[in-house]
Amino acid sequence: MNGLDLAPLWLTLRLAATTTLLLLLLGLPLAAWLAHSRSRLRPLVDTLVAMPLVLPPSVLGFYLLLALSPANAPGAWLRELFGVNLVFSFAGLVIGSVLFSLPFMVQPVAAALSGLPPSLREAAWTMGKSRLATLLRVELPCVRPALVAGVVMSFAHTVGEFGLVLMIGGNIPGVTRVASIAVYNEVEALNYPAAHAYAAILCAFSFAVVLLVNLLRRRAERIA
C-alpha cells in the first residue's frame, strides 16, 4: 500500500460528484417531464434516455471522440465557445459520464413520480403553487427514496465507468486517469500490489454503495 498514488481515487470521486450534481440539475426536470408529459415525443425521449443501458461504452466513446475532436465541427465549435479542447479533458469525461449515467438518475425518479396520485399535484396547484414549486416542495419529497437511489447509483456507476474513459481520456495523470483506468494500467505493467490496492478499495466502495441502496429501499418499503 505504501506509496500508492491516491490521485486516481480523488479524481474518480471528483468526476462522480460533478456528474451526479449535473445529473440532478438536468435529470430531475427530464424525469418530471417524462413522468407527466402526454407529448408524442415522450416514447422517443424515454428510449433515448435508456439507450446508455444497452449501448456498449465503446460506441458512446467512439462517437464522443469524433464529436469532441477539434478536427470536427462540434469539437471546433465547442473550442471556440469555451476556449478549451474537450477531448482528453476532465470536462470531456464529465460530458461522457453524464450521458452514460443518465438512465440511472432519470429512470427511478421518473417511475416514482408517475406513481404518485395526480391529486397531489392538483391540490398543490389549486393552492397557487407553481409547477416548479410543486415539483420541488411536494413531488420530490414524496419520492425521496427513488431520488436517493438515483443519486447513489449515478455516483456509483460513474465510479465504475471504464470503456468510455479508456477511449476519450488519454490516461493523463490527475486529469483523466481515474481509478478504474489505474487498475488496468497496474495490471498491464505487471504491478500487482498496486492493482490489488486499487481493486480492494473499489470493491469496498461498491459493496458499501449497494448495501446503502438496499437499506434505503427496505426503509422506504417499511414506510410505504
Binding site: 469524433l66 475532436s69 478536427a71 479508456l166 476519450i168
Partner: peptide, 20 residues
Amino acid sequence: RLVSGDNIAQAAQFVVSGAA
C-alpha cells in the same frame, strides 16, 4: 500535452481522428 493510448494503435487513432 501528452495523452497516452492504451497501445500504439490507439495513439495512432488519436492522430487519425484529429483528437491529438
